[in-house]
Every structure is written in structure tokens, then in C-alpha cells.
Write a protein that binds this DNA or RNA. Structure first.
Lengths: 249, 249
DNA sequence: TAGTGGTCTAGACCACGGC
DNA sequence: CCGTGGTCTAGACCACTAC
């Protein structure tokens, strides 16, 4: 892979350390799609030449991006744009099990799709203009054909237009690969907020629990590499069996 | 501050990178109390001399410890052993408020103290020998004299002997400063596990909620700088108003 | 002013992956 | 074998803190 033309944008604030300018420039190239997830970026030696810095400075910039989870390094192979795994999502702690006791990933099924004006809260969270419309998806996730999670997903229509007409049975089990495949939208990070509510009658009917039993509610905003919010989602599931672990320092 | 005698322990695995050996040695010195929380460690220049490495290698070792939250650096002043803040504890998300709506920190009150043999699970979690005994504390935390959290704390007696006789009204509101003051035990990190249960009749009576309403249960194991577990604790509180936020990459 | 950490250089040699 | 990232050197100058 080759660098194309100029190394650093002219409008960068030159008072910042050079490793910071380089970090920002690499993020910009990834966000613009010059370097795609799963692909290798140029070698350290090439980047040193392009940015006109020594290896120590360049490595400091890359160290930052590795610590942020944007890049991964493999000795002997290269440095790659990381494909986010979302292993740290709260929902890996739901410890779902199939009938025979083995852990499984739930399947996904879209129940409803509408093009709607978002509420003011969702419009603001997705940084959409007042005139824009959005796509709302209602989704259920199942294990052994039993519903375990209810999801409501809001997407800005101008980024996800392809999903307005895609047949509902072609959505598949995972949304983020779909976003990438059908809309070239890549989720790079997310913010989640966990709360506990009592099951509504709708929760009770959909999740087969009693009204008033505890429900975990996870509200997520997913961001692209540039930090722009592209998806708003809430997920609801029975609190029974839920477990969340965290290390504190 | 001066380095005392030998730089690296002889039994270290010399196949590891030098910055890793230095990192481990600094952690060892902190765990042994040679360098105490809040105090400065020797300057980078001194450490380079003592460990016989160049500044780049030494800084890599310190970078690791800063990233781990063990050290903090201040330009012009020095590098300091960090006093853990526990800001990331799940319980900062309980968003407690006093009657006038201002956020407050709950006070603490010890209800009961006993010297007991721990259950097998707690004995194992605290890495205690079968013959050792422990101190069990029952504690309640209050806001405006209203109980909001129930806590059960188990401590190995051989580390916390001073707490067996200390008058209960001298425990104060915060346990970790007490541990440091009365027992010279410093909590450096912790692991927490969050689950949701339905309120028992005891929860209902103590926390003034209805039986069966959702309760957040946080089970914590606190560790010293050497990574040895020194405290086992569960905290229970009403799930209403609880909120937990996390960033995912 | 003296001392601290913050940034940066221009190389070197080593370990690993793939051909 | 060559190219990759991993480790390490022996300095330099700068920015900030305290006196």
C-alpha cells in the first residue's frame, strides 16, 4: 500500500505534538475510507518517511491508536485497522444458553420497519438536522425460537437508505455487518447506559416474563471512526441470569 | 529519595523485555511499601542509572504503569504513586440525592461485627488458609438518615486485627481510608460483579422497598498493590435510579 | 536558576511471518 | 530469504514547577 500525496493537512494545529498530529491524521484517513477495517496501513518505515519523523515518534502515534483500539499490530505482518468486535458489550454477560446448556448467540428477526421523524431526544443523539427522517426497526432476538431480547433501533435515513427497501428476511442475525455490507457504514465504538426497569405488559408478552419483574435496559449510541453517531438502540431483556463484571483501578 | 542497593531482583526472567522487568520491579517496591501512595518515586534520570537502561526504555516501563493507573506523572514535579480513587466504582452511578435535590455521598454505620470462620467461597476468594478466621462487618449506608445500601464485608483477621477491638463509632464513613490508617492495608484495585435480584424481606425492611422489587447487587473483591485479595464485600440497593455507563471500542 | 517530565532524533539489533 | 513490527540506545532540546 502506498501513501497518497500530502502527509499532514495544512490546517492542523502545529502547536500540538507531532505524534498527536499523526494520530489525528491516521484517524481521518480511516474515517474517510482511505484505509479500511481489516486492511494493513503502510509500514512504520514508510510512514516515517511520509510524515518526516523518526521511528520513535511514529510509534508513539501508533501506540495511542492501539491503546484506543483503532489499530492492531502483528509482528512480522503489519499494522491493521481493527474491525470492532463489541466483545465488551454488556450483552455478552447475558450468558444465554440453549436447551442443551451450551452457550449460544441469539438469532435476530426484524418485526417492523418504518420511516419516521425521530423524537427530539433521538434526533439530538444522532446529531440529525430537524428536516431529516429516520428508519425505525423493531427487532427481537431469539434462542431456540424463544424471544430473549427486544430491540428498538433508530438510524438516520440519509446514511442507511438501502435498508428502506431491503426485504426484512435478508437482514440476517447481526446488524453491524449488514450496515457495512449494505450501507458502507462502519461502527467503530459505542456508548452504552444500563438501567433496570420493571417489565411492562409489552415486555411481559414479548419476553414471557411476569409484569413487574426486573428488566435490564441497555441504551446504546454507536459511532463511526470519526466519532459521529450513526445508530441509536435500546435493548430490553429479563434481568434473571444477567451478570456484569468490571475491573476498577 | 534514593534507590536502595540492587536494581533488579536476581530471580527475574531475563528473557522478558527490560521495560517489563523494570515495571514488575517498581510494582514490587510499591507493594512492599518502599514507595508509598502519594509519594514521588525517583526521577527518570536516577532510575535510568539504577536500572542501567536508556531513557526511552525506562519511560516505556513508566508508561505501562501510568496506563494501569498505578503511577501519575506531573511535568516539572515528578512521578507519583497513585492513591486509588474508586471513581469508576459502579456505585457512583447510584446518583444519590439529598432531600433538597443536591447530590450527596452516603454516610456509613456499622451495625454488627463478628469474628467468624468464613464460608468456603469467601475463604477461597480471599486466598486464606483453612485455619484462618475472618472479621465480618454488617454495614448500612444512609442519606438524610434514610438507609439506601446494605453491605456485608469480610476481612482476613491477620491483616485487619486492629478492627476487632476498635469502637464501632470510630469506623467513620469510608472504609478504605480506615484500612490504611488503622491496619496499613492499601486497596489498589478491585473486581466488581453486578447482578439483579428481587428484594428479600430483609432487603425490604432495611431499604424500605417492596418485597420482590428489583435490587442491584454488587459483589466486590478488593486487592492490594501485589494483587492479593484483602476484602470481600457485597452491596445491595434499590435498582430504581441506578444507571451504569460504559464505553465500548 | 535548577530540576522535573515531555518530546524527538537517527539510528541499531532482534523475533516473527511468509515466501 | 526479506520485510514486518519489537526492543533499545545515547543523547538532544523544550515546557513546566519550585525556589
Amino acid at each position: 500500500m502506498t501513501m497518497n500525496s500530502v502527509s499532514l493537512p495544512a490546517q492542523a494545529d502545529l502547536r500540538l505534538p507531532r505524534y498527536q498530529l499523526i494520530r489525528d491524521d491516521i484517524v481521518r484517513r480511516i474515517a474517510e475510507g482511505q484505509w479500511a477495517p481489516g486492511q494493513a496501513i503502510p509500514t512504520e518505515s514508510d510512514l516515517c518517511t511520509a510524515y518526516e519523523v523518526s521511528i520513535g515518534t511514529l510509534r508513539k502515534a501508533i501506540d495511542l491508536l492501539v491503546a484506543e483500539g483503532v489499530l492492531t499490530r502483528t509482528q512480522g505482518k503489519g499494522t491493521f485497522v481493527r474491525r470492532p468486535r463489541f466483545d465488551s458489550s454488556l450483552f455478552r454477560f447475558f450468558r444465554f444458553k440453549s436447551a442443551d446448556g451450551d452457550p449460544v448467540q441469539p438469532t435476530g428477526k426484524i418485526l417492523d420497519r418504518k420511516v419516521l421523524k425521530p423524537s427530539e431526544a433521538i434526533r439530538a443523539a444522532l446529531q440529525m438536522k430537524a428536516s431529516e427522517t429516520s428508519i425505525r426497526l423493531s427487532r427481537v432476538r431469539l434462542i431456540d425460537s424463544e424471544p430473549v431480547l427486544r430491540e428498538e433501533i433508530w438510524l438516520p435515513r440519509h446514511r442507511f437508505g438501502a435498508l428502506v427497501t431491503l426485504p426484512l428476511d435478508e437482514f440476517g442475525d447481526l446488524m453491524y455487518p449488514l450496515y457495512e455490507r449494505a450501507c458502507r457504514q462502519i461502527v467503530a465504538s459505542a456508548k452504552e447506559t444500563l438501567t433496570v426497569e420493571e417489565a411492562t405488559s409489552e415486555d411481559a408478552a414479548a419476553l414471557r416474563v411476569n409484569v413487574g419483574s426486573p428488566i435490564i435496559v441497555v441504551q446504546r449510541v454507536a459511532l463511526d471512526f470519526a466519532g459521529t453517531p450513526i445508530e441509536w438502540r435500546t435493548t430490553r431483556g429479563a434481568a434473571t441470569g444477567f451478570q456484569y463484571q468490571v475491573d476498577i483501578r
